[in-house]
Amino acid sequence: MDLSAINPLALIASLIVASTPILLAAIGELVVEKTGVLNLGVEGMMIVGAIAGFAVSVNTGNPWLGFLAAMFAGAMLALVFAILTQYFLANQVATGLALTLFGLGLSALMGINYVGKKPPSFPKLDVQFLTDIPIIGQAFLNHDYMVYISILLVAAVWYFLKFTRTGLVLRAVGENHDAAHAIGYNVTFIRVLAILFGGACAGLGGAYLSLISVSSWTEGMTAGAGWIALALVVFASWKPWWIIIGAYLFGGVTVLQLNLQAVGVTIPAVYLSSAPYVVTILVLVIMSGGRSSAPASLGRVFHASH
């Protein structure tokens, strides 16, 4: 066993790459849940985004178009969820689960011809003097653009929810949809928009997996990332910045335990593999201090009858 074989800078760089798909999906789901909707279809939307982005990138040779396509595909799947739950008042839990199963099947079908193909490479932030900064340059400033976009997205969501009137309305809808309706806000419309945004983010996260971090298409490649994103929203107490902490923590421990396994640490592999889940949950539970800040209308069906 040789722990010095683990390079901390490379570790940080790879944890950021490992975390970004979850981060993207989770920040989208956070907005959805802030409006009081629980969409358990994140995994399905992610994997459909993964194959849609992959296919478009391979066919056009342009990874940016791939990401756009992934957002669109995720949003379209979310639209199905939105129509079922917001207009036909279907149960959100059941519909979300169905969406995940549907997404997994659909993506397998779409991806038959893409197994084993290589996506076009994606541009990196490659500014010589930044990358040359010792330590920081290697670990933080030499990533692909999507990493920075994802962090900007979190900042934007935080600012939007905290400082804009529209963000306040969105939170109000999730807090008490009857009151929001009584004051005169269009609860259903606001929720549909949020669901579409959540779908687009999940699609983006999926495409990041297939285009950048794994760089190939395999069936079922999200492997539970969508569920992690869902759990992360809860454990982060619906706070945008905590999502970053949670996602990077999870990604970090995942990468670390893989490294540890590689260098042959004597801890059994099952414990190491479960470490990311245990550590992330523990840290976020301790941070949230037992106070629940769940949107009060989360998961409840809204019907403007009274």
Binding site: L168, R171, A172, E175, D178, A179, A180, S293, A296
Partner: peptide, 14 residues
Amino acid sequence: SLFDALTVAENITL
């Protein structure tokens, strides 16, 4: 028609 988790000012502005 109030929102429990929001402040007085936020409720009024809504």
